[in-house]
């Protein structure tokens, strides 16, 4: 499924743009080299039989020196020069007014922590036009954070913290993906980067800071009892309630997110119901266990979760 713009060749930030430019340069040089060699090769094949009787011809050795030594040296020196320049273009020091966000990799989802204490999952909200410093760590194995439209990849390595700068001037929703094989569901360890204008970002962050909405109806209230009763709370936190588990994603504002299961399916009540009762039908092998609920419990629980805006 596709939620958003993605792709390293459709760059929406300065770092991604620098990388895309380098890529195009390499494609052009590679294609030019290929064409030159194809022409020489075909020329050699066509004229081959005619000049075979003249072994004293010195041209072949000059051709090999030119094509085998001079040409690759020139091409590689150009590529090296532009690569070093690209590395300098991509920021590696703190620009003014940067925002810091922590990203913690888990098998197979992303925990996102904001400086004001907000903890979310699988959706990095960033203010457009302001550089963001991502502190990347992991709770288990090596992962790699990659939002191709915004920046290059950076690994999340156990026992250390890596830094990645992302920056975009264009509001939009960009797709990301774990880029380091991390186990069974590596392919479904995705995320969204949501870039919003500064004002809307601040509003969003303030809303996320608030504790969970109180259930708006008696059945949603029942749903909260189900949530506590069947064991959801031992892994999930819902701030403002007794649920304070830390094994799984924070669900305080679950219904405000666009996707479920690390950007695997859209966050609709139908998908949420399947996810809650049998998560392995959507994402085989995840830590979250299936939960047996009767019809009424199921309806109440979904109503409660859908109220967590």
């Amino acid at each position: 499924m596709s939620f958003a713009a993605s792709g390293a060749l459709d760059p929406r930030g300065p770092a991604a743009r620098a990388i895309a430019d380098l890529w195009w340069l390499m494609v052009v040089l590679g294609a030019a080299t290929f064409v030159v060699f194809a022409v020489v090769l075909i020329g050699g094949l066509v004229r081959g039989s005619a000049s075979a009787e003249d072994p004293g011809d010195e041209r072949p050795s000059r051709l090999i020196l030119l094509g085998g030594v001079a040409l690759p040296s020139v091409v590689l020196i150009i590529v090296l020069g532009f690569t070093v320049r690209t590395m300098h273009t991509i920021p590696n020091a703190a620009p003014e007014g940067a925002l810091q966000i922590e990203v913690v990799g888990h098998q197979w989802w992303w925990e996102i922590r904001y400086p004001n204490g907000v903890i979310s999952a699988n959706e990095v909200h960033i203010p457009a036009g302001r550089p963001v410093r991502l502190e990347l760590t992991t709770a288990d194995v090596i992962h790699s954070f990659w939002v191709p439209a915004l920046a290059g990849k950076m690994d999340l390595v156990p026992g250390r913290s890596n830094t990645l700068w992302i920056d975009t001037d264009r509001p939009g929703v960009y797709e990301g993906q774990c880029a380091e094989f991390c186990g069974l569901q590596h392919a479904k360890m995705r995320l969204l980067a949501v870039a919003e204008p500064e004002g809307r970002f601040s509003e969003w962050l303030a809303r996320q800071r608030a504790p969970a909405a109180t259930p708006g109806s008696p059945s949603a209230d029942e749903g909260q009892q189900v949530f506590a009763g069947v064991g959801c709370a031992s892994c999930h936190t819902v701030r403002g309630t007794a649920a304070d588990g830390t094994g799984g994603p924070d669900l305080t504002h679950l219904a405000s997110r666009r996707t479920l299961a690390a950007a695997t399916v859209p966050n609709t009540p139908e998908h949420l119901e399947v996810w809650v009762t049998d998560p392995h039908a959507i994402k085989e092998g995840v830590e979250m266990p299936a939960t047996e609920l009767d019809e009424r419990q199921r309806r109440e629980l979904i109503e409660y979760l859908e109220g967590l805006r």
């Binding site: 499924m1 596709s2 069974l184 569901q185 092998g285």
Partner: peptide, 13 residues
């Protein structure tokens, strides 16, 4: 094809 289920994730890995 996107979202193809030809192989299970385990078998693919």
């Amino acid at each position: 094809r996107p979202e193809s289920d030809l192989l299970s994730p385990q078998l693919f890995n």
